[in-house]
């Protein structure tokens, strides 16, 4: 190839790749939109689009209660928590160069969940305070896992195994607190054990949306440095990226996203873990992995919740459905990772 041909080929490829990123992200946004529409309009029976619009606009004769008080908060909570789990998950997976290192496998979701349930049930906190407790607890667990695995940034099996141990410990804390709870209620328990958007209220949505803006923004600001960090610490530093500083910011952002989402909807099983690898398959090696993972997270929660509510013989919380999808994928990843040591 001549220099001119290479120039054309590279420029053409970048253009194609740009189009591909836009197309893929656009497709995912459309899918999320469809699922939101489905959640709003269809329950046992389906509303006509005109009735749905009328209800959303607050017309008197429209089924306003069902749409605005039941379905809208549910769809909104599914959307924002899905985005948070997807973004937080992929950030950890990319940073630690291992798909198994997602926050729900290495105990960060579990710690946020345990802290939230403790704050609500034992300390009777609510609102932002619960989320703040969950974030702090998540950060404490990250520090603990890093200290125990004693190799900062290393994505070794050691870090993941320690994370799994910590996760199991914290799950038992959650179970214990729930047993101690005075008004023991099965739906509430399911929320903290597997994650659920049942009984969602708009009041739960706003803190998660705030977290999405703040921590999502932080993540977006470091996303280029995060991408360079994939080349290894030395190569990244040689390219002007401060490895430790980048890791710190990514960790705070990811823990913030996951902890806020968890304190609202519980640790919705495997959404953080599944979103990144699925996004990587959708996007290929091109850019746009982070937003794609966020959107996939939203798709998983919205679709999982709809399936759990209306497409199975029993009504199940979303975490049970995503868990049933996630567990086989976890096995597949472990088998595949052992075979070729693949990253995300």
């Amino acid at each position: 190839m001549s220099a001119a041909e290479v120039h054309m080929a590279l420029a053409g490829r970048r253009q194609r790749e740009g189009r591909r990123v836009v197309l893929a992200l656009g497709g995912l946004v459309a899918l999320v939109f469809c699922l939101v529409f489905l959640t709003l309009s269809c329950g046992r029976g389906c509303l006509a689009p005109a009735d749905l619009m009328a209800a959303l606009l607050g017309h008197e004769d429209a089924p306003g209660f069902i749409v605005n008080d039941l379905r809208l908060p549910r769809a909104a909570l599914s959307l924002v928590t899905g985005l948070c789990f997807g973004l937080g998950g992929v950030a950890f997976q990319v940073m630690l160069r291992n798909p198994l290192a997602s926050p729900d496998i290495i105990g960060i979701s579990a710690s946020a969940g345990a802290a939230a349930v403790f704050a609500i049930v034992i300390l009777s906190f609510d609102g932002w305070v619960v989320s703040a407790v969950a974030v702090v607890s998540g950060l404490v667990v990250v520090v603990m896992i890093w200290a125990l695995s004693s190799r900062r940034g290393a994505a070794g099996a050691r870090l993941i195994l320690i994370g799994i141990g910590v996760s199991a410990m914290l799950d038992s804390v959650t179970a214990y607190v729930l047993l101690e709870a005075p008004a023991w209620d099965r739906a509430e328990a399911m929320r903290w054990l597997t994650g659920s958007v049942n009984g969602a209220q708009m009041g739960q949505v706003w803190p998660v949306l705030g977290a999405l803006v703040v921590f999502g923004g932080l993540l977006a600001a470091v996303s280029r440095d995060l991408d360079i960090l994939r080349l290894g610490d030395d190569a990244a530093q040689a390219l002007g990226v401060r490895a430790d500083g980048t890791r710190l910011r990514v960790t705070v952002a990811a823990v913030g996203l996951v902890a806020f989402a968890t304190s609202a909807a519980g640790p919705i099983s495997f959404v953080a873990f599944l979103s990144g690898p699925i996004a990587a398959r959708v996007m290929g090696p091109s850019r746009g992995l982070l937003p794609a993972a966020g959107l996939i997270g939203a798709v998983l929660v919205l679709a999982g919740d709809y399936v759990g509510q209306f497409m199975l013989p029993y009504r199940l919380p979303v975490g049970v459905v995503t868990g049933a999808v996630g567990a086989p994928f976890l096995l597949y990843l472990i088998v595949r990772t052992n075979r070729n040591g693949g990253t995300i």
Partner: peptide
């Protein structure tokens, strides 16, 4: 770091290639 990286580069002993990345 950025100012140094504009003047001095390093090829480390074992850099890591993200899976599926193209040469360009």
């Amino acid at each position: 770091s950025r100012a140094v990286a504009q003047v001095m580069g390093l090829l480390p002993q074992s850099p890591i290639a993200p899976e599926g990345i193209t040469v360009s």
